[in-house]
Every structure is written in C-alpha cells, then in structure tokens.
C-alpha cells in the first residue's frame, strides 16, 4: 500500500494548505514513465521522513484542473509547502538526490 496521501481538489485544502507539517506534493500520471521511475524512491523517502513531512501525490490524469491551478504543466513535478504556502518546486531535470535535497532544505 502506498504511504502517500492521494490529493484531489476536494481535500487539497485540508491535506496541503492546512497541514501543520511541511508537505511534499508529487504530481504524476499513469502514462509518465519518468514519474513511475521516481515513485519507489519517493515511497522510501516518505518512510524515512514520516514524522517530519507529509507526503502527498496528485494523479494528474484525474485532477488536471488542480494541477493547472497550481501551475503544473509538466511531469514529473514536485511542489513543497510550509504553512500552506508553496516554498519550492522541482520541475524539468531532477532526480532522487534533488528531491531529498529539497526535502532537507524545506525542513530547514
């Protein structure tokens, strides 16, 4: 079972914007090969940082409007939130090392 919380337009407010923990939001799609490659790594990181950060994911195939609202136009994309505000994002060329690096930076 996935350790990541599935986020949709219905629970984004509760799970992301009102979260007391910082949030990682992983935008993926079932036809995005690079997203599938990163998934196991993200699952590992979710376990490693379980008590410090909340790990969430958005299936963009079913939540395209939410993705576009958050200005996500490309997969994979990772957004980082603190106190409900976006503080950083990874888009374009990045891998597992950059994701963990950004988790640490966001945690401060």
């Amino acid at each position: 079972m996935s350790t990541l919380v599935e986020v949709t337009k219905d629970n984004v407010e509760f799970e992301v914007k009102n979260s007391s923990l910082p949030v990682l939001l992983d935008f993926w799609g079932p036809r995005c090969g690079p997203c599938m490659v990163l998934m196991p790594t993200v699952e590992e990181l979710a376990v490693k940082y379980a008590d410090k950060m909340k790990f969430c994911k958005v299936n963009t195939a079913e939540n395209r409007r939410l993705a576009i609202e958050l200005k996500v136009m490309s997969l994979p994309s990772f957004l980082f939130f603190r106190d409900g505000q976006e503080v950083a994002r990874l888009q374009g060329k990045f891998g597992a090392a950059e994701i963990e690096g950004q988790i640490r930076t966001t945690l401060g």
């Binding site: 036809r31 995005c32 090969g33 200005k71 136009m73 490309s74 997969l75 994309s77 888009q91 374009g92």
Partner: peptide, 12 residues
C-alpha cells in the same frame, strides 16, 4: 523546462 518546455508529449 517543466514550465512549458517538454521532451515527452505522452507525459505532458
């Protein structure tokens, strides 16, 4: 890149 520039039409 990732904000309109893409190398994967199937993804995006």
């Amino acid at each position: 890149r990732g904000r309109g520039v893409s190398y994967c039409a199937v993804c995006d």
